[in-house]
Design a binder for these strands. Structure first.
Length: 933
RNA sequence: GCUCAGAUGGUGGAACUGGUAGACACGCAGGACUUAAAAUCCUGUUCCCGUAAACGGAGUGCGGGUUCGAUUCCCGCUCUGAGUACCA
């Protein structure tokens, strides 16, 4: 029979499911290999053709590794807590768990159609109580830990308490809140229980603190920094404002240095690492305290100096003014009565500007003088203090020392307000702009005069430290992560409050289930939706009402797959010891500063407390590119009165007519040719449409846009699978281009892949479509074709160049067709090699070859034998004059006796040889490509 | 502005450490089969000139350089995409 992909694919998908072919074994003697996909959020729209791209790539890799003899863990699950289900619940009243359930069913059906080799027995859902029990458990471990900087690791809070009880706060080097108290052991013991708890909260890795948060009123929740884009929420695009709130936070900053260092040990795409480095934002510099000039202010000040952070402490003698952020907490106290009006006017003006305006408008210089002066700690020169909105309250100390000769922003500010500009380096050119050079030697710099950059920096820091006015400091841009969300559809925080202080619930009470509520909206008093729950009360106090953010469940899920049904641990020690870490992780780069950073953070924490073994969770990571939409257009003819008619002009002719473009559903267009009948049925108003054709066809225009319903360019994998089959879909998605590159989806070439599979099928069949293979011994040419593809696929898969493999398969099958090869010895091995790309057709042929049903998935990958290739193609690595290296494949070689004539005829060659005679010359189409001298 | 990635036929793309540029596929043109169409198969297809053909010239965004030889390496520029944005 002809290639009947529908029957074949259904048969094998059923077979794999029933026989649990891809169930991974936790007790195998084979080497392990863990291939992971970023699990999806099951949205209501279902999968479009872009989603499976990464899954197909990882599936090919997983299947390949199985053939190579590895015990492969290749699981899938759902990140099923999230906003859309909740918003749907608000609109319809339908419980988010129902919506989620339905969406998951759709996803599963769509995924099953593509023939993935997932081990579904390990499926996880972050919203199922059996799963979030352990998310809550990890939260409890974080609450019960503090970060010991001396040891560079997290430790138990009990250990900290023990230290407090014996030695007080002395000798503690922790990452903590800034306002920790200093006390002796005796004082600690004298503290009330509540005082102790309050103090400990300042050390816990997950802690409660009043902090400025990104509040999104429209969504009724706070958002993390990476969920905010240009002052608007990433989801929905609602405005986001800054607001002070009591919030759960995660002390991820404790891990900043380790998160940065770890990047050098993992095989990730460089751009992604760079994004994480920028996000962590390490800058090495110094903090300097500028004492406030006594007589500057008549009144008594509670603060005596302004602290700044700088990366160029060497320029301190060039400081001619200080700038603090308008939101800086000292502004009010510092401003002199005479300047009060000015400053207040400036602050109101700044506040009026939206976040966006303020960022866009970086050219306008604005600021106001506070009226007070500080002293340069190294030479006691008075320095005026200004406020200006180019200084951000949220970074460093919210205050900077301005060096107009070296910093362009300071330069512009100084010019605008007529402040002095002092050059401090001999070669500095500051005629028209600041010169941030580090070359040359210092001038106008007191004891640093004549020194180089390195010397000056060291000398100045030493001096500052000696007089107690500053010290070397490393600053990070990364902030602690806000962990609370005022939403319903998330993990409840396993905490209750007593006397205003948080306490963990008992571990035996886990999971703390989400309570049922009547409406999914905040309460009338503005509390989160959980405030609506009745009968939901801890015996000791009130439950926390906010839930965890979306990234909580996804920050450890790869461990749950290792031991998905364990009730007593998040995964057994044995399972974690066996599977260790993820060998290959495939997903989008949009998670660079969210999921991928938080996951690394939690992993490091879990390692610190001895629950996992690896410092980094994802050894190798590949970003699949985004699949963009490719929209098609028809061109409506405009009549003389400028009205649209019901006549449509083919794309090639639109210059001759007046037309307006109109999106048309890409599913009724094939190779940019419109199916005019389907178009008439597409919408009622086109029922009597007429067409002006070219070459008898209606050709559509096209453009690359986002894949979206609005542009009618969404292509559904179901449609492709039912039209061409899963094997064609899998191969075509790979054929489309390099995995990591973004590209528009179009089906223009899919026929080629389909034809290839049919050709492959035909190799095993005679003209009447009867299965027939020959038992004869293969010829040299046949063996060569086979071994070329064996090697090629091996190389391609290892370097994730799946698109070139597909081409190579086509070449191999074309060659074998040409040779009329139907030898079992060849086809058997070819089937194994193709199996990871097109598993259904290969399983079928494998069974027809008499190999036993369903044994293909674990068949041994054939061994490449180079002797079949070195017939007339081989390589010569040679070196000439010790510098030129050549390495070529050879098609024709001249004998030594023919060389002389050849060399004489070729000036290039003569120059190259410098009079020597080559031993061997390699010529291709009359051109020398290589010589052995 | 900064950082990164990229630019190759009508199209998607190949060429892995410098060595026959355009593999493979789509599209297009011509042909075979067919009453016809679809399907299938075969041939051609970077551009220009000449031409039936061999053959000749140009050619990997633009301008230089290194090299016997550059899509590949170096310098400068243009454009496109992504990320980031007053980070002191």
């Amino acid at each position: 029979m002809d290639y009947q992909f529908k029957d074949i694919e259904q048969k094998w998908q059923q077979f794999w499911a029933e026989k649990q072919t891809f169930k991974a074994d936790n007790n195998s003697t084979k080497p392990k290999y863990y291939v992971l996909d970023m699990f999806p959020y099951p949205s209501g729209a279902g999968l479009h053709v872009g989603h499976p791209l990464g899954y197909i790539a990882s599936d090919i890799f997983a299947r390949y590794k199985r053939l190579k003899g590895f015990n492969v863990l290749h699981p899938m699950g759902y990140d099923s807590f999230g906003l859309p289900a909740e918003q749907y619940a608000i609109q319809t009243g339908q419980h988010p768990s129902l919506t989620t359930e339905e969406n998951i069913a759709t996803y599963r059906r769509q995924l099953d159609q593509i023939g993935f080799s997932f081990d579904w027995s390990r499926e996880v859902r972050t919203s199922s109580p059996g799963y979030y029990k352990w998310t809550q458990w990890i939260f409890m471990q974080l609450f019960n830990s503090w970060y010991n900087k001396a040891e560079e690791k997290a430790e138990s809070i009990a250990k900290l308490v023990e230290h407090f009880e014996t030695k007080g706060s002395a000798g503690i080097n922790a990452v903590s809140d800034e306002d920790t108290a200093t006390f002796t052991a005796g004082e600690w013991k004298a503290y009330s229980h509540n005082q102790q708890q309050e103090e400990l909260l300042k050390y816990r890795i997950t802690y409660l603190r009043e902090s400025t948060v990104n509040w999104c009123a429209a969504l009724g929740t706070v958002l993390a920094n990476d969920e905010v884009k240009d002052g608007f929420s990433e989801r929905g695009g609602y405005p986001v404002e800054q607001k002070k709130m009591m919030q759960w936070s995660m002390r991820i900053t404790a891990y900043a240095e380790r998160l940065l260092q770890g990047l050098d040990t993992i095989d990730w795409p460089e751009p992604l690492k760079e994004m994480q480095r920028n996000w962590i934002g390490k800058s090495v510099g110094a903090s300097v305290k500028f004492p406030i000039k006594k007589e500057a202010h008549n009144s008594q000040l509670t603060t005596h100096n302004i602290e700044v952070f700088t990366t160029r402490v060497d320029t301190i003698f060039g400081v001619t003014f200080l700038v603090i952020a308008p939101e800086h907490e000292l502004v009010n106290e510092l401003t002199t009565p005479e300047q009060k009006a000015d400053i207040e006017a400036y602050i109101t003006q700044t506040k009026k500007k939206s976040e966006l305006d303020r960022m866009a408008d970086t050219k306008t210089v604005s600021g106001a003088f506070t009226g007070i002066y500080v002293l340069n700690p190294l030479n006691n020169e008075p320095i005026p203090v200004w406020i200006a909105d180019y200084v951000l309250a949220g970074y460093g100390t919210g205050a900077v020392m301005a060096v107009p000769s070296g910093d362009q922003r300071d330069y512009l500010f100084a010019k605008h307000y007529n402040l002095p500009i002092v050059p401090i380096i001999d070669i500095q050119n500051i005629e028209t702009e600041a010169d941030p050079t580090k070359e040359g030697t210092y001038i106008n710099s007191d004891f640093a005069n004549g020194l180089t950059y390195k010397e000056a920096t060291a000398a100045i820091i030493a001096k500052l430290e000696a007089i107690g006015a500053g010290k070397a400091k490393v600053n990070f841009r990364m902030r602690d992560a806000i962990f609370g969300r005022q939403r319903y559809w998330g993990e409840p925080v396993p905490v209750y409050f007593k006397d205003g202080l948080p306490y963990l619930i008992d571990e035996s009470e886990l999971p703390l289930l989400l309570p049922e509520i009547d409406k999914y909206l905040p309460t009338e008093t503005g509390e989160p939706p959980l405030g609506r729950a009745t009968d939901w009360k801890h015996p000791e106090g009130e439950y926390e009402l906010s839930t965890m953010p979306g990234w909580a469940g996804s920050s450890w899920y790869w461990y749950r797959y290792m031991d998905a049904h364990n009730d007593s641990e998040f995964a057994s020690e044995k399972a974690i010891e066996y599977w260790k870490d993820v060998d290959l992780y495939i997903g989008g780069s949009e998670h660079a500063t969210g999921h991928l950073l938080y996951s690394r953070f939690w992993n490091k924490f879990l390692k610190d407390i001895g629950k996992v073994n690896e410092e980094e969770p994802f050894k190798k990571l590949i970003n699949q590119g985004m699949i963009q939409g490719r929209s098609n257009f028809v061109y409506r003819l405009i009549d003389a009165e400028g009205r649209g008619t019901n006549t449509f002009v083919s794309h090639g002719l639109i210059k001759e007519y007046k037309t307006s473009p109109l999106h048309v559903d890409v599913n009724i267009v094939k190779n940019d040719t419109l199916d005019t009948e389907k178009f008439k049925n597409w919408r009622p108003e086109f029922a009597d449409a007429e067409f002006i054709l070219e070459n008898g066809k209606y050709v559509c225009g096209h453009e690359v846009e986002k894949m979206s319903k609005r542009y009618y360019n969404v292509v559904n994998p179901d449609d492709i699978a039912s039209q061409y089959g899963a094997d064609t879909l899998r191969m075509y998605e790979m054929f489309l281009g390099p995995l990591e590159q973004s590209k528009p989806w179009n089906t223009n070439g899919i026929e080629g892949v389909f034809k290839f599979l049919r050709k492959f099928w035909r190799l095993f069949h005679d003209d009447q479509w009867n299965f027939r293979v020959s038992e004869d011994a293969p010829t040299k040419a046949e063996l060569k074709a086979l071994h070329k593809i064996i090697r090629k696929v091996e190389e391609d898969v290892e370097r994730f160049s799946f698109n070139t493999s597909v081409s190579s398969f086509m070449i191999a099958v074309n060659e074998l067709t040409e040779l009329k090869c139907n030898k079992r010895a060849i086809l058997q091995e070819l089937t194994i090699v193709l199996a990871s790309y097109a598993p259904h057709i290969c399983e079928e042929l494998w069974a027809l070859l008499g190999n036993g049903e369903g044994t293909l998935s674990y068949a041994p990958y054939p061994t490449f034998k180079p002797e079949y290739l070195v017939e007339d193609d081989f390589a010569y690595p040679i070196s000439i004059n010790g510098k030129t290296k050549m390495n070529l494949s050879i098609s024709l070689s001249l004998d030594i006796k023919d060389i002389e004539a050849f060399v004489l005829a070729n000036a290039d060659v003569q120059r190259y040889l410098e009079g020597k005679t080559p031993k061997k010359v390699i010529v291709v189409k009359g051109r020398i490509v290589n010589m052995v001298v």
